[in-house]
């Protein structure tokens, strides 16, 4: 079992002919992901790493039956790329781009929802089910199949936790980077619900950061709906207020969205809150050991 994708997921890469598109198409193919099509206006009929290139998403979908889209389109054109994928009813759309205007995402998220599609991101590293499928730029070699679901607002911290778990011999059931922007397609709650329902997932690692109230909402959801053990790490405890910490969404405003608030919310929801990513991985390994011993 897995969430969102399987080994059979057929991936379309938008703007496959750019440097990033080419490089990561190769990486995804090497990982075993079924990349079946690419698009790049003006490049229809070419191929990249053996993957056929089409002029439009419509052509690519009708020729290959792609059911997931990943774009390497520059930020200014990313909203349009998402809309094109949604208009062609691609069920899973992954957007990595950083720098899309927030009000564009407000409209795009509503449109994607109206079409019945799911958007992951923007400003994220993508997602993967280790051993099955990787869609995005996550380094495949640090993951291994196993029982831990990871959901994260930060790309690099997803890698930290995954690598630390793998080093401890603990694999992952799914890893989803939901993105560091204020307006994102899929939130913690959406992924937590999937991980709770996924039989392969036995424990969950959640990585949050300052800004907004997604973590607080996730904490309420966990208290009410998640029976699997959860460990959380929140980045930005030392971040000064009113400063955007790289991610557009990572900012403490009006004294709200602080790491302290989020950690307190998690603690009151029974989540194990950790000081470092290494500690988070160690805690999860420990939770699984105790769970196994109790069986």
């Amino acid at each position: 079992m897995s969430i969102l994708v399987t080994g059979e997921t057929r991936v379309l890469v938008q703007n496959i002919t750019g440097d990033e598109g080419r490089f990561h198409t190769k990486q995804m193919l090497l990982y075993g992901t079924k990349v079946v099509a690419g698009t790049a206006p003006g490049h229809g009929g070419e191929d990249v790493e053996g993957v056929p290139v089409f002029e439009s998403v419509a052509e690519a979908v009708s020729a290959t039956g792609a059911d997931a889209a990943l774009s390497f389109v520059p930020a200014r054109f990313s909203a349009d790329a998402i809309v094109e994928a949604a208009d062609n009813l691609i069920p899973l759309i992954v957007c990595l781009s950083e720098g899309i205007p927030a009000l564009d995402m407000v409209k795009v998220c509503a449109h994607v929802k109206a079409k019945g599609c799911r958007l992951i991101g923007p400003n994220c590293p993508g997602l993967m089910v280790p051993g099955e499928c990787k869609i995005g730029i996550l380094p495949g070699n640090i993951f291994m199949p196993g029982p831990v679901g990871i959901v994260s607002r930060s790309g690099t911290l997803t890698y930290e936790i995954a690598a630390a778990l793998t080093k401890l011999g603990v694999g992952q059931s799914a890893c989803v980077g939901i993105g560091g922007d204020p307006i994102i397609g899929t939130t913690f709650i959406d992924i937590l619900a999937m991980l709770q329902a996924d039989p392969q997932t036995e424990a969950i690692a959640l990585i949050g950061e300052i800004g907004g109230s997604d973590e607080e909402e996730a904490a309420v959801f966990i208290a009410e709906n998640v029976t699997k053990p959860v460990a959380a790490f929140v980045a930005g405890r030392t971040a000064p207020p009113d400063r955007r910490m790289g991610h557009a969404g990572a900012i403490v405003t009006g004294g709200r969205g602080t790491a302290a608030d989020k950690m307190a919310a998690f603690e009151s929801a029974g989540v194990t809150v950790c000081e470092t990513t290494d500690e988070t991985a160690a805690m999860i390994a420990d939770m699984l050991r105790r769970k196994a011993a109790a069986r």
Partner: peptide, 28 residues
Amino acid sequence: SYIALEGNVGCLVNGAGLAMATMDVIKL
């Protein structure tokens, strides 16, 4: 993306999340 703070340990990191976590771990 650079923001000056008041300490003495300079940080050069990739990724906003890791950059924040690096600051946190130095403080820790």
